[in-house]
Design a protein around this nucleic acid. Structure first.
Length: 237
DNA sequence: AATAGTTCCAACCGCCTCTGT
DNA sequence: AACAGAGGCGGTTGGAACTAT
């Protein structure tokens, strides 16, 4: 991995410098026109358009959410997969901050392998979910304190439109009333979570069904998420 | 402590669709 | 209408990290 191949394109893991350069590019030129990236960039970034797009969409986008899939999200994935099958991008649109790749990976490791859901023994799954619930209960207290600040920050970001014009699409999907809904993890019927949408087309219902759990932005930063946030901060501030 | 098995996740590939000419 | 290029999507791979034995 990490070697140059046909056409001179670099492959393999991205370096921090490559990330920085790509972020700069998107900052100036916006998303899209990925094949132009290589022509605008210093020789250091010999990545083809597809690779750049993938890196941005799955890793560098500032609105990405990191950390474990919550039980609520897990429910949502199950529910939506039952409805949509392997249409990961469709499913991902209902889970703001999650990528299709992430959901796909999660599905494959947890539900696909041993036939239908869930993949693990019920006992194991239960233990796993309980651990997460404990962890999240701890975090919830912190979140309640910090959520107000975070919302204020998001509003500020929306106002500074010239800085973030390239990211409006995703953020507008993120902010919606269900921001408060991340409470009942083990709800068996996902419909109970669903806020009443203003518009009631089935597509809208799915969009509104999404959730925005701020835990990872606020507290549970993994090394990688931390790195991502650092990079994101260079974009916004 | 060593090994095997599992989970996680970044990244690539090939195909399909969309869009511009 | 036909073609080409770009972007999007789902499937797959491979390696690192974690967990169980």
């Amino acid at each position: 991995m990490g070697e140059e191949e046909g056409g001179g394109w670099r492959k393999g893991p991205w370096t921090a410098e490559e990330d920085r350069v790509l972020i700069e590019y998107v900052k100036v030129h916006g998303e899209g026109r990925w094949n132009n990236v290589s022509t605008h960039l210093p020789p250091g970034l010999k990545r083809n358009g597809k690779s750049c797009r993938l890196r941005w969409v799955n890793y560098l986008r500032p609105d990405l959410k990191r950390g474990h899939i919550t039980p609520h999200e897990e429910n949502l994935i199950l529910h939506l997969h039952a409805r949509w099958g392997n249409r990961w991008s469709t499913i991902a649109r209902s889970l703001p901050g999650r990528t299709d790749n992430e959901i796909k990976n999660y599905w494959r490791t947890h539900f696909k392998k041993k036939g239908k859901y869930p993949s693990q023994s019920p006992e194991k799954t239960q233990v796993r979910l309980m651990r997460r619930q404990q962890f999240q209960a701890m975090q919830q207290q912190q979140q309640q304190q910090q959520q107000t600040d975070m919302k204020r920050m998001m509003l500020l970001l929306d106002e500074s439109e010239e800085n973030v014009s390239t990211f409006t699409h995703s953020r507008q999907e993120i902010i919606h009333p269900s921001v408060q809904d991340n409470q009942g993890y083990f709800c068996s019927d996902i419909e109970e979570y669903r806020p009443i949408p203003v518009s009631s087309s089935s597509e809208d219902m799915i969009l509104w069904d999404g959730l925005w759990n701020l835990e990872d932005l606020q507290g549970n930063l993994t090394g990688r998420a931390n790195y991502q946030q650092t990079i994101a901060s260079t974009l916004f501030f």
